[in-house]
Design a protein around this nucleic acid. Structure first.
Lengths: 153, 153
DNA sequence: AACTATTTGACCATCTTTGACCTTTATTAT
DNA sequence: ATAATAAAGGTCAAAGATGGTCAAATAGTT
């Protein structure tokens, strides 16, 4: 049915996730690899290509004894994913308020922590004093894009 | 209940602490170890990783007969930045590398997370392309100062 | 053929657990 | 009192248990 390993692993995990009452799925990398008869790093490949933030999944992990991979579908009702936000950035940010709005949405959606949001707002504020309007606007967009990329890609 | 020993010990202690009227929790290392069926030094590991000052806990102890471990939750606002960083900022930052060095020290010292360090480095990188050297230098110092203030004040 | 996606494996980083050895404090024997 | 002994807790490094990275090899597409 599924041609390749990555696809069937994706299918398998999404089915389990859908069935899970807790809203997230916790697995052991090695076990999963064992079940699919592949090397553990194959699991990382599937995470990296199928369970990205863009696609609405958040993967957390922990190493060491009793380590795990935890996959959760993030709730994106009513507001954009980071991907959508990038498009917004593509079109430029008319003003500082718009950038701050994006930061707030990220924080409310738990994509970033409160500390991270404060960091981003501080960086933004630094350029708000520039005289050259063109430079200011360009830097604002660049800053937002780079910072978001730093976090999500 | 929980996955690994350290986690469940942490959970157990925090529950007891929350229940305690006195605001602190006093235990015996060996007893606790006995309850969890592990070596005593495991308790030290839990203290060192879960009940740090960073996380708002203070652990006092006493050796010898009638020895104990006393855990208390403390207010953890307003602690000092690691050596000389504020002074360094005061004197300006000659170049990008110096700023990155500060970020690295903050990260290595666990003052900021990896994500936060990436955020800060991304912001720095944005201004590194500016033509105007003076503006670039000024912005770099401003950025660093504002971002650090955002985190620590 | 060129480009893209998948699969593997060697090597790395991080977290946990354990144990041997060390230091401090209280109690007991002289 | 003092010295010896017992009773805590502390340190540190090694071993164990996971997951992560990266680049090379392979398979699939265009």
């Amino acid at each position: 049915m599924m041609g390749n390993l990555a696809d069937s692993m994706e299918y398998y995990l999404k089915k389990l996730l859908a069935l899970s009452a807790s809203g997230f799925l916790e697995i052991k990398r090695k076990e999963l690899a064992g079940k699919f008869n592949c090397v553990p790093s194959q699991v990382n490949y599937v995470m990296a290509t199928r369970f990205t933030l863009d696609k609405g999944y958040l993967v957390e992990s922990r190493r060491g004894g009793k380590g795990y991979l935890r996959i959760r579908k993030v709730n994106t009702d009513g507001w954009e994913l980071p991907g959508g936000i990038l498009e917004e950035l593509q079109q430029g940010l008319a003003n500082n308020g718009k950038a701050v709005g994006i930061i707030e949405r990220l924080r409310e959606g738990k994509y970033i922590s409160v500390r991270e949001s404060r960091l981003m707002e501080a960086a933004l504020q630094c350029i708000s004093g520039l005289k050259n309007e063109q430079l200011k606007d360009d830097l604002r967009v660049l800053l937002m894009r780079r910072m978001i990329e730093a976090l999500f890609y």
